[in-house]
């Protein structure tokens, strides 16, 4: 049970972060949120927080059991009677956490526009630029990494994003760069370019969705 509870806890943590005013990646439904008794504006992700915490209780049960069994000679000892309540409790809370997480996921709205705007921030396509230098200009990856790093620094220092740099600026960093490079700097292009098995290209994602749907039927 602890591995499953750990995975639930990680997803719960993402929901807590994503639903914050700073991120706004997702909007949680009212059905799985609560208000504050003092601050009228608040909508708290309590279900996610409680799911995040269940791993402590469930792994605690495992540790309690391991300590009970430690040092017991064969065969039966009455110590073992202490196992029931730990296992009963862990199972109850795992089932509850699974059901709550399912409900939260079914109800939540992903804020597409916020996700897209955020995807473009932070020079997120720098790796695509470096990959282009390897693929189209024949640079060793180490050198491509270095050239790209210099361009990121230039963009950062001048308060711009990578696609806002001019071709001349790019070519000053490396003469092999052509206008073609701007084609890989957009987020959509970046995502669509990862076409190997399991990649981010929407075609590949849909393939995986279809595969899992079939397996879960």
């Amino acid at each position: 049970m602890p591995p499953c509870a750990t995975h639930l806890s990680r997803l719960a943590e993402e929901l807590v972060i994503w639903s914050s005013a700073q991120f706004r990646f997702v909007t949680l439904s009212d059905r799985f949120s609560t208000g504050s008794s003092i601050m009228p504006q608040k909508k708290n992700p309590d279900a996610a927080e409680l799911i995040r915490a269940k791993v402590g209780r469930i792994t605690g049960a495992l540790v309690a059991l391991l300590m009970v069994m430690k040092g017991l000679p064969l065969a039966y000892s009455k110590d073992m009677q202490e196992d029931k309540e730990q296992v009963f409790d862990a199972a109850d809370h795992l089932m509850l956490a699974l059901a709550a997480m399912e409900g939260m996921l079914r109800d939540l709205t992903a804020n597409r526009a916020v996700l897209a705007a955020s995807a473009a921030a932070g020079f997120s396509t720098a790796t695509d630029l470096a990959d282009w230098l390897v693929r189209a200009a024949g640079l060793p990856f180490r050198e491509a990494h270095h050239v790209t790093g210099a361009l990121v620094r230039l963009a950062e220092e001048t308060g711009r994003d990578l696609p806002d740099l001019t071709l001349a600026e790019m070519q000053a960093a490396h003469p092999a760069i052509t206008a073609e490079i701007f084609g890989v700097l957009g987020v959509e292009n970046s995502v669509a370019s990862r076409q190997s098995y399991g990649g981010t290209a929407p075609l590949r994602v849909r393939e995986q969705v279809a595969r899992w749907k079939e397996r879960l039927e």
């Binding site: 089932m95 699974l98 996921l105 996700l115 955020s118 995807a119 921030a121 969705v209 899992w212």
Partner: peptide, 23 residues
């Protein structure tokens, strides 16, 4: 319970298969 949760995550995945977000 896990499979029900997987279906919920899958429904999200299907809806937003081409919605960019930061990794």
């Amino acid at each position: 319970g896990i499979e029900a949760l997987m279906r919920a995550a899958l429904a999200q995945a299907e809806a937003g298969a081409d919605w960019p977000m930061p990794g």
